[in-house]
C-alpha cells in the first residue's frame, strides 16, 4: 500500500531523511519512534506530499509521488492525518470541522455530511460536543475530533504524528482507545508515538529512527525487550523512566 524507496531529504545542508526504506501493507499498523529531531514528522509528512524529498521515491497504491502527473489533492483524500497539536479549525464548531472537507471537497450535501459526522462523533465517544467550539474542549476531546475529521473523508490510510504527546496523562487513554479501535477495524496506519503499550497491542511493525535513518525494526516483544543498537537501548532507558 505504501512503499518508501530509498528516500533522502535535506533541509538546506541538514540531511533529515537518510535512505529510508519501508513498506506498509494494507491493514498494517507501523509505529515509528525515535528521539526528537530524528525525522519522524518529516517522514510522515513526506508520505502524503506535505514535505517534498530530493531522492528516492514513495508509492501509495502504486502511485509515485515523483510522477509530475500525480494529483496530490486526490492522494491526500485517501490519507487522513492527525497532528500533535490537534490543529482543529478554531473558528468552526466541532461538527463544521468534520463536515467542511466532505462538503467542499467531495461535494456532499450538508445533511449527508452532518449525519456522517455525528456517526463519527459517536464512534470517538463525544457526540454531545458537536455544537461546541474546539477551544471549549479538553485536549483529549479535541484530538478525538481531529481523528473524526480525518475519518470523514473515508481514508484508506491514517497518519498520526505524536497524537498523545500534547495531552495530560489522564486523557491519553481515551485517544489511544480510539486508535486501537481503528487499528482493529483494519485501518492501515503509520503512527509516530512513544506509547509502548499501544505499540505492543496493535503494531505489526515498529521502527526506530535516529538522525534520519531507520536504525532498527522489529515486531513488538522482541523490539522492546532485546534492543540491538546502543541508540535504541539508550532511547528506551530514557522513555521508560
Amino acid at each position: 500500500m505504501i512503499e518508501i524507496i530509498n528516500v533522502s531529504k535535506w533541509f538546506g545542508e541538514l540531511k533529515v531523511l537518510d535512505n529510508v526504506k519501508e513498506t506498509i501493507n494494507k491493514g498494517q499498523v507501523v509505529v515509528i519512534c525515535g528521539p526528537s529531531g530524528s525525522g519522524k514528522s518529516t517522514l510522515l509528512k513526506s508520505l502524503n506530499g506535505l514535505e517534498p524529498f530530493q531522492e528516492g521515491d514513495i508509492r501509495v497504491d502504486g502511485i509515485s509521488l515523483n510522477d509530475p502527473k500525480t494529483n496530490f489533492i486526490k492522494l491526500r483524500q485517501k490519507m487522513g492525518m492527525v497532528f500533535q497539536r490537534f490543529e482543529l479549525y478554531p473558528h468552526m464548531k466541532v461538527i463544521e470541522n468534520i463536515t467542511i472537507a466532505p462538503t467542499k471537497v467531495l461535494n456532499q450535501s450538508k445533511s449527508q455530511a452532518g449525519k456522517k459526522a455525528m456517526e463519527l462523533l459517536e464512534r470517538v465517544g463525544i457526540p454531545e460536543q458537536a455544537d461546541k467550539y474546539p477551544g471549549n474542549l479538553s485536549g483529549g476531546q479535541q484530538q478525538r475530533v481531529a481523528i473524526a475529521r480525518a475519518l470523514a473523508m473515508e481514508p484508506d490510510i491514517m497518519l498520526f504524528d505524536e497524537p498523545t504527546s500534547a495531552l495530560d496523562p489522564e486523557m491519553i487513554k481515551e485517544v489511544l482507545d480510539v486508535m486501537v479501535d481503528l487499528a482493529q477495524s483494519g485501518m492501515t496506519m503509520a503512527v509516530v508515538t512513544h506509547e509502548m503499550g499501544f505499540a505492543k497491542e496493535v503494531a505489526d511493525e515498529i521502527i526506530f529512527m535516529d538522525e534520519g535513518r531507520i536504525i532498527e525494526r522489529g515486531t513488538d516483544k522482541s523490539f522492546f525487550e532485546n534492543p540491538e543498537s546502543e541508540r535504541l537501548k539508550e532511547f528506551l532507558r530514557k522513555i521508560l523512566i
Binding site: 509528512k45 502524503n48 506535505l50 489533492i73 486526490k74 491526500r76 483524500q77 490519507m79 487522513g80 492525518m81 497532528f83 500533535q84 497539536r85 490543529e87 482543529l88 479549525y89 467542511i100 472537507a101 467542499k104 471537497v105 467531495l106 481531529a146 475529521r149 480525518a150 470523514a152 473523508m153 497518519l159
Partner: peptide
C-alpha cells in the same frame, strides 16, 4: 501545521486559504 491539516483533508491550497 494548521495549513497542513487543511491540506491533509484534501483541500487545495486555494481552499485551505479560503476556508481556514
Amino acid at each position: 501545521d494548521q495549513f497542513n491539516a487543511a491540506l491533509s483533508t484534501g483541500f487545495s491550497h486555494y481552499q485551505a486559504y479560503r476556508y481556514i
